[in-house]
């Protein structure tokens, strides 16, 4: 009588590996994709209005280009904080307080952070 847990433990890695091979997005990839969508959406992040980002067209240049993000924000939490409320670092910042003013939901901000962190 094979234990259920043993079967799961045996099959799980095969299933996960299989899902990657079959092209099903992992949780991370899905989030990154969502993050790019929200960032580029004019009615949501609209980040291209002020930042050069990746392959985005007609980027603005009020803010710095979003490149080398891991180097610029070694602490991911600090990147999230900057998007949530840029006024903490600089009360005169041009950047809208996306979290503080509920411009974006927490979920949207989390997704954007995952995307931006890949740049």
């Amino acid at each position: 009588m094979i234990r259920k847990t043993a079967v799961i433990a045996f099959l799980a890695p095969i299933i996960m590996f299989g899902s990657v091979l079959s092209g099903v997005a992992t949780a991370d990839e899905a989030m990154i994709e969502k993050g790019k969508e929200v960032a580029f959406d004019r009615k949501k992040g609209n980040c291209l209005a002020c930042h050069m980002i990746d392959d985005g067209s007609l980027p603005g240049n009020q803010g710095p280009p979003l490149i080398s993000m891991k180097a610029r924000f070694p602490d991911k939490a600090k990147l999230r904080a900057q998007i949530y409320n840029p006024l903490e670092r600089n009360p005169n910042s041009f950047m809208p307080p996306f979290g503080l003013h509920n411009i974006l939901s927490d979920g949207d901000i989390d997704a954007i952070v995952e995307y931006i962190y890949t740049l």
């Binding site: 006024l87 009360p91 005169n92 503080l100 003013h101 509920n102």
Partner: peptide, 19 residues
């Protein structure tokens, strides 16, 4: 949501009256 918008607006007004 509406209540929160007005609360944030009042905080914003206070902040800006000095800044």
């Amino acid at each position: 949501k509406a209540q929160e918008q007005s609360a944030d607006a009042m905080v914003q007004q206070k902040r800006e009256s000095e800044l």
